[in-house]
């Protein structure tokens, strides 16, 4: 935990994670033979790029994070069977991967917020967790629309 002594360090960590996500989806897009899936992954990568830019803006004091907006947790991911990212065959699979990733990130930041002492850092982790949960809901809503239309 010692590496998370400062706000900047935490933000750098979060930014790095977003970059990893961009690379992750980018490489899945590169592997995909199905053009529609390729499109899906590229759009996910773009989505993560947006998250990264937001954090960069926060780091340079051009923007702030808020955790006041209400995010409904649809909890769809809780009951979905995980998909191996290397085995993604459809948009539905891809969405499951994305939802699970955002969920993991949300959980990570929530745990971190409970472990740090510094109130400023705790607040930052909470906000990051909130961000990730918003991302998760976005994907969950998409999943609902496309794959649970009659459910």
């Amino acid at each position: 935990m010692s590496s998370f002594g400062t706000i900047t360090a935490v933000l750098d960590f979060a930014i790095k994670r977003e970059q990893e996500a961009i690379d992750f989806y980018g490489s899945l897009a590169g592997q995909a033979t199905n053009p529609s899936l390729k499109k899906v992954f590229l759009s996910f990568a773009k989505e993560e790029q947006g998250h990264k830019e937001k954090l960069l803006a926060v780091k340079s004091n051009k923007s702030i994070l808020v955790d006041k907006t209400e995010v409904a947790d649809l909890k769809i991911s809780d009951y979905l069977v995980s998909v191996d990212p290397q085995n993604v065959m459809s948009f539905q699979d891809a969405l499951v991967v994305a939802i699970k990733r955002e969920k993991a990130a949300m959980e990570l930041y929530t745990v971190m917020s409970k472990r740090v002492e510094d109130p400023a850092l705790r607040d930052l982790f909470k906000k990051l967790a909130h961000e990730e949960s918003a991302h998760k809901t976005r994907f969950e809503t998409m999943y609902e629309e496309h794959f649970l239309p009659e459910n």
Binding site: T33, S36, K39, V40, S90, F91, Q92, F147, E150, N151
Partner: peptide, 19 residues
């Protein structure tokens, strides 16, 4: 709970992200 489209055999034809 719903149906979706399998358009993977259409190769270069433009499809949306959900096929």
């Amino acid at each position: 709970i719903g149906q979706n489209i399998d358009s993977s055999m259409l190769l270069d034809l433009e499809v949306t992200s959900w096929g």
